[in-house]
Protein backbone atom coordinates (compact mmCIF):
# COMPACT_ATOMS: atom_id res chain seq x y z
CA UNK A 1 0.00 0.00 0.00
CA UNK A 2 1.38 3.44 -0.94
CA UNK A 3 1.86 6.23 1.58
CA UNK A 4 -1.12 8.12 0.08
CA UNK A 5 -3.30 5.03 0.35
CA UNK A 6 -2.17 4.58 3.96
CA UNK A 7 -3.23 8.14 4.73
CA UNK A 8 -6.59 7.62 3.03
CA UNK A 9 -7.21 4.36 4.89
CA UNK A 10 -6.39 6.05 8.18
CA UNK A 11 -9.22 8.52 7.63
CA UNK A 12 -11.86 5.97 6.63
CA UNK A 13 -13.72 4.45 9.59
CA UNK A 14 -12.99 0.76 9.97
CA UNK A 15 -16.71 -0.03 9.86
CA UNK A 16 -16.84 1.05 6.22
CA UNK A 17 -13.77 -1.03 5.23
CA UNK A 18 -14.29 -4.38 6.90
CA UNK A 19 -16.65 -6.96 5.46
CA UNK A 20 -16.76 -10.26 7.33
CA UNK A 21 -19.85 -11.37 5.45
CA UNK A 22 -18.74 -10.27 1.98
CA UNK A 23 -21.47 -7.63 1.99
CA UNK A 24 -20.65 -3.90 2.12
CA UNK A 25 -21.37 -2.63 5.65
CA UNK A 26 -23.92 -0.04 4.54
CA UNK A 27 -25.92 -2.56 2.53
CA UNK A 28 -25.77 -5.07 5.37
CA UNK A 29 -27.15 -2.37 7.70
CA UNK A 30 -30.07 -1.78 5.34
CA UNK A 31 -30.85 -5.50 5.31
CA UNK A 32 -30.88 -5.53 9.11
CA UNK A 33 -33.26 -2.56 9.14
CA UNK A 34 -35.53 -4.43 6.74
CA UNK A 35 -35.28 -7.55 8.91
CA UNK A 36 -36.70 -5.53 11.81
CA UNK A 37 -39.39 -4.17 9.48
CA UNK A 38 -40.42 -7.72 8.55
CA UNK A 39 -41.18 -8.38 12.20
CA UNK A 40 -43.14 -5.14 12.55
CA UNK A 41 -45.28 -5.49 9.41
CA UNK A 42 -45.34 -9.29 9.67
CA UNK A 43 -46.76 -9.10 13.19
CA UNK A 44 -49.39 -6.61 12.08
CA UNK A 45 -50.41 -8.55 8.98
CA UNK A 46 -50.27 -11.92 10.78
CA UNK A 47 -52.55 -10.77 13.59
CA UNK A 48 -54.92 -9.17 11.06
CA UNK A 49 -55.18 -12.45 9.11
CA UNK A 50 -55.94 -14.36 12.32
CA UNK A 51 -58.73 -11.99 13.34
CA UNK A 52 -60.09 -11.67 9.82
CA UNK A 53 -60.52 -15.43 9.51
CA UNK A 54 -62.44 -15.42 12.77
CA UNK A 55 -64.68 -12.43 11.98
CA UNK A 56 -66.51 -12.96 8.68
CA UNK A 57 -68.44 -9.70 9.13
CA UNK A 58 -65.22 -7.80 8.42
CA UNK A 59 -65.91 -8.54 4.75
CA UNK A 60 -68.90 -6.16 4.99
CA UNK A 61 -66.61 -3.45 6.38
CA UNK A 62 -63.94 -4.13 3.73
CA UNK A 63 -66.62 -3.66 1.06
CA UNK A 64 -66.39 0.09 1.79
CA UNK A 65 -62.72 0.46 0.86
CA UNK A 66 -61.98 1.94 -2.56
CA UNK A 67 -60.54 -0.92 -4.69
CA UNK A 68 -59.85 1.35 -7.66
CA UNK A 69 -57.81 3.75 -5.53
CA UNK A 70 -55.91 0.85 -3.97
CA UNK A 71 -55.17 -0.65 -7.41
CA UNK A 72 -54.04 2.73 -8.73
CA UNK A 73 -51.71 3.12 -5.74
CA UNK A 74 -50.30 -0.36 -6.41
CA UNK A 75 -49.60 0.75 -9.99
CA UNK A 76 -47.97 3.96 -8.71
CA UNK A 77 -45.70 2.12 -6.24
CA UNK A 78 -44.67 -0.49 -8.83
CA UNK A 79 -43.81 2.33 -11.24
CA UNK A 80 -41.83 4.18 -8.56
CA UNK A 81 -39.96 0.93 -7.84
CA UNK A 82 -39.05 0.69 -11.51
CA UNK A 83 -37.68 4.26 -11.34
CA UNK A 84 -35.69 3.35 -8.20
CA UNK A 85 -34.06 0.31 -9.80
CA UNK A 86 -33.27 2.32 -12.97
CA UNK A 87 -31.64 4.92 -10.69
CA UNK A 88 -29.49 2.14 -9.26
CA UNK A 89 -28.55 1.06 -12.78
CA UNK A 90 -27.57 4.65 -13.65
CA UNK A 91 -25.53 4.95 -10.44
CA UNK A 92 -23.60 1.81 -11.32
CA UNK A 93 -22.80 3.44 -14.66
CA UNK A 94 -21.45 6.42 -12.62
CA UNK A 95 -24.13 8.67 -14.12
CA UNK A 96 -25.12 10.64 -11.01
CA UNK A 97 -27.42 13.22 -12.68
CA UNK A 98 -29.40 10.46 -14.43
CA UNK A 99 -29.68 8.53 -11.16
CA UNK A 100 -30.92 11.71 -9.45
CA UNK A 101 -33.59 12.19 -12.14
CA UNK A 102 -34.88 8.64 -11.64
CA UNK A 103 -34.89 9.15 -7.88
CA UNK A 104 -36.94 12.31 -8.49
CA UNK A 105 -39.44 10.14 -10.37
CA UNK A 106 -39.59 7.77 -7.41
CA UNK A 107 -40.24 10.66 -5.01
CA UNK A 108 -43.00 11.87 -7.31
CA UNK A 109 -44.53 8.38 -7.18
CA UNK A 110 -44.46 8.52 -3.38
CA UNK A 111 -46.17 11.90 -3.46
CA UNK A 112 -48.94 10.67 -5.75
CA UNK A 113 -49.41 7.62 -3.50
CA UNK A 114 -49.86 9.84 -0.44
CA UNK A 115 -52.27 12.16 -2.23
CA UNK A 116 -54.47 9.23 -3.29
CA UNK A 117 -54.33 7.87 0.27
CA UNK A 118 -55.33 11.28 1.62
CA UNK A 119 -58.28 11.39 -0.78
CA UNK A 120 -59.35 7.89 0.31
CA UNK A 121 -59.05 8.58 4.02
CA UNK A 122 -60.87 11.89 3.93
CA UNK A 123 -63.72 10.28 1.99
CA UNK A 124 -63.93 7.30 4.36
CA UNK A 125 -63.77 9.43 7.50
CA UNK A 126 -66.46 11.74 6.10
CA UNK A 127 -68.74 8.69 5.71
CA UNK A 128 -68.23 7.57 9.31
CA UNK A 129 -65.60 4.89 8.72
CA UNK A 130 -63.18 6.13 11.37
CA UNK A 131 -60.45 4.28 13.26
CA UNK A 132 -62.86 3.79 16.22
CA UNK A 133 -65.73 2.25 14.24
CA UNK A 134 -64.57 -1.37 14.22
CA UNK A 135 -61.40 -3.45 14.68
CA UNK A 136 -61.23 -3.83 10.88
CA UNK A 137 -60.95 -0.06 10.46
CA UNK A 138 -58.44 0.13 13.32
CA UNK A 139 -56.24 -2.32 11.42
CA UNK A 140 -56.84 -0.51 8.16
CA UNK A 141 -55.75 2.88 9.48
CA UNK A 142 -52.83 1.56 11.55
CA UNK A 143 -51.40 -0.66 8.79
CA UNK A 144 -51.88 1.87 5.98
CA UNK A 145 -50.76 4.73 8.25
CA UNK A 146 -47.58 2.91 9.29
CA UNK A 147 -46.91 2.10 5.66
CA UNK A 148 -47.53 5.73 4.72
CA UNK A 149 -44.99 6.88 7.33
CA UNK A 150 -42.45 4.56 5.69
CA UNK A 151 -43.26 6.12 2.31
CA UNK A 152 -42.66 9.61 3.75
CA UNK A 153 -39.36 8.52 5.38
CA UNK A 154 -38.24 6.95 2.09
CA UNK A 155 -39.05 10.14 0.17
CA UNK A 156 -37.06 12.33 2.59
CA UNK A 157 -34.00 10.05 2.52
CA UNK A 158 -34.29 9.69 -1.25
CA UNK A 159 -34.28 13.47 -1.69
CA UNK A 160 -31.02 13.67 0.32
CA UNK A 161 -29.46 10.81 -1.69
CA UNK A 162 -30.63 12.39 -4.98
CA UNK A 163 -29.07 15.76 -4.07
CA UNK A 164 -25.75 13.96 -3.48
CA UNK A 165 -26.09 11.82 -6.60
CA UNK A 166 -26.68 14.90 -8.77
CA UNK A 167 -23.17 16.03 -7.78
CA UNK A 168 -21.78 12.53 -8.37
CA UNK A 169 -21.25 11.89 -4.65
CA UNK A 170 -22.04 8.74 -2.63
CA UNK A 171 -23.57 6.93 -5.58
CA UNK A 172 -23.57 3.63 -3.67
CA UNK A 173 -26.38 5.07 -1.52
CA UNK A 174 -28.72 5.02 -4.53
CA UNK A 175 -28.82 1.22 -4.29
CA UNK A 176 -29.37 1.35 -0.52
CA UNK A 177 -32.39 3.64 -0.60
CA UNK A 178 -33.68 1.62 -3.55
CA UNK A 179 -33.65 -1.60 -1.51
CA UNK A 180 -35.63 0.16 1.22
CA UNK A 181 -38.14 1.53 -1.30
CA UNK A 182 -38.70 -1.88 -2.90
CA UNK A 183 -39.43 -3.28 0.55
CA UNK A 184 -42.07 -0.58 1.12
CA UNK A 185 -43.50 -1.57 -2.27
CA UNK A 186 -43.52 -5.27 -1.28
CA UNK A 187 -45.40 -4.48 1.95
CA UNK A 188 -48.09 -2.65 -0.03
CA UNK A 189 -48.35 -5.65 -2.37
CA UNK A 190 -49.63 -7.60 0.66
CA UNK A 191 -51.75 -4.81 2.17
CA UNK A 192 -53.62 -4.27 -1.10
CA UNK A 193 -55.36 -7.70 -1.30
CA UNK A 194 -55.88 -7.81 2.47
CA UNK A 195 -57.78 -4.52 2.69
CA UNK A 196 -59.07 -3.90 -0.84
CA UNK A 197 -59.69 -7.22 -2.58
CA UNK A 198 -60.78 -9.71 0.11
CA UNK A 199 -64.38 -8.52 0.45
Amino acid sequence: MSHAADLHAAHVPIATRRSATGIPTARLAVWWVLASEIVIFGGLIGSYVMLRLHHPHWAEEAAHTNTLAGAFNTFVLLTSSLAAVLAHQAAEAHDGPRAARFLGGTILGGLVFLLVKGFEWSNEIAHGFTIFRDVFWSYYYVACGLHGLHVIAGMVIMAIVAADARRGRNLHRVELIGIYWHFVDAVWIFLFPLFYIAK
Partner: peptide, 23 residues
Protein backbone atom coordinates in the same frame (compact mmCIF):
# COMPACT_ATOMS: atom_id res chain seq x y z
CA UNK B 1 -39.73 -7.43 -6.47
CA UNK B 2 -37.38 -8.95 -3.88
CA UNK B 3 -35.52 -11.12 -6.38
CA UNK B 4 -35.06 -8.69 -9.27
CA UNK B 5 -35.50 -5.16 -7.92
CA UNK B 6 -33.85 -5.78 -4.52
CA UNK B 7 -31.38 -8.18 -6.20
CA UNK B 8 -31.91 -10.91 -3.62
CA UNK B 9 -31.32 -13.43 -6.41
CA UNK B 10 -27.65 -12.43 -6.49
CA UNK B 11 -27.25 -11.35 -2.86
CA UNK B 12 -24.96 -13.16 -0.40
CA UNK B 13 -26.54 -16.13 1.37
CA UNK B 14 -26.10 -14.38 4.74
CA UNK B 15 -28.89 -11.93 3.85
CA UNK B 16 -31.22 -14.84 3.14
CA UNK B 17 -30.45 -16.24 6.59
CA UNK B 18 -31.36 -12.90 8.23
CA UNK B 19 -34.65 -12.56 6.35
CA UNK B 20 -35.68 -16.19 6.77
CA UNK B 21 -34.96 -15.95 10.50
CA UNK B 22 -37.39 -13.01 10.74
CA UNK B 23 -40.04 -14.87 8.73
Amino acid sequence: VAAYFMHLNIEERYVWYILLLML
